[in-house]
Nucleic acid binder design. Structure first.
Lengths: 211, 211
DNA sequence: CCCGTTTGCAACGAAAAGTTGCGTTTCGTG
DNA sequence: CACGAAACGCAACTTTTCGTTGCAAACGGG
């Protein structure tokens, strides 16, 4: 009657296994193709155990998403905006590679079939963005950006590019790739432009280079 | 025996309707949840017509993807990198909102269940990037960027951010939003930083503002 | 040690997926 | 215009998957 405070019995361990299996299945299948029997097999339990505990597939996935409380924690500031962005990039890379990341990315695309689940996944991901605000304030204090909205802009661009590359294009993103993105975010094309003008100057003899 | 060169008979019209229905269904369902019967109903044909023409669901989706030959054509350069990026952003926005875009985005996440289909969708999307190369060359000629790889970097960031915003976060992206992204891509945080330093200078009296 | 709960197992019913046979329509062809 | 092959719709059918139920065994707390 009061198992809440008790030690983790075998029942909750089984439940954790099932939710974990759900996430892993959802990471390589998609919601429509998710089979509760495969989930049960992966969790090492009988399918009746799954069916008896959750009414529908949506309930199971809902519970599985709720169990993904592990948010992205980029940690304290590194002391520079560039360092912070690099760390955020690495954090995104690791998250996207994880089962939870793959799972969330898939569920978030279910807007039309399952709006509620998509909303849950969205909120779960948005929560990780809250952590970025502290880094934003540090960058503002250093005078590297003006507002927190600027930081959000940078993170949106970095996050989007990494997601596209890792999830949709299925290409790797090592630190060099991330650094390229970050450099654009910090300096835009201005650095690139000046480099080109330098080349032009070398080639054409510094004709208009003076101005 | 030689219907290839003939005028569009009712047979090909039916096939087009089925493939179109497949894309539309795939735009709001997902691959695992795609039902050939719903496709047939949407196309206004009997399900046997669909089953007889394509062996499996994968075959049908493969054919549907192949029929999406309409690539993203950003058109000729506007004369400035900023104008080109804005136009690319608007093109991405419209594509993502279309059935083909929704469909492609979903299919591209099927790496594990259906690697071949994911590869097709990926290639289809990559083809649209080829169009960007002409804009890149124009920008290089104007000295706004150094290499075509730089242009790809900018487009990857813009594309990723817009996809995240439109598809995953389900938020709109008007021209103002796109312009914010583009400004970061062009000038990075330098513009923002200088604005802040200006404020600091006003407050602290231009102490380190000179350099 | 006992009793309530939970699980596994197997069998079951229901629904969707996929197939087949046949009469009808359509379109190309002589 | 008439004929024949191919494709379609329709309905019935088989197969597979999904979800449920009954029951005996295992587990765990009191």
């Amino acid at each position: 009657m009061k198992p809440g405070a008790g030690p983790p019995s075998s029942r909750v361990a089984r439940e954790r296994a099932i939710l974990r299996a759900t996430i892993e299945e959802l990471a390589r299948s998609d919601y429509g193709g998710l089979s509760l029997e495969r989930v049960a097999a992966r969790a090492g339990v009988n399918k009746t155990t799954v069916y008896r505990r959750w009414e529908t597939k949506a309930d199971l996935v809902r519970a599985a998403l709720a169990s993904v409380a592990k948010s992205l924690r980029p940690g304290p500031t590194t002391g520079s905006l560039r360092g912070d962005l690099m760390r955020i990039g690495r954090t995104i890379r690791e998250f996207v590679a994880s089962f939870e990341g793959q799972c969330l990315t898939r569920v978030r695309l279910l807007e039309h079939p399952e709006p509620e689940l998509a909303g849950m996944a969205r909120e779960l991901h948005a929560r990780s963005l809250d952590e970025v605000f502290s880094l934003a304030r540090a960058a503002i204090a250093r005078g590297e950006i003006a507002t927190e909205a600027d930081m959000m802009l940078l993170v949106e661009l970095l996050n989007g590019a990494l997601h596209m590359r890792l999830v949709m294009k299925n290409e790797a993103a090592d630190d060099v790739v991330i650094a390229r993105y970050v450099d654009v975010l910090l300096h835009g094309t201005d650095r690139l432009k000046s480099k080109t003008q330098h080349d032009v100057a070398k080639r054409k003899g510094a004709r208009k280079a003076a101005r």
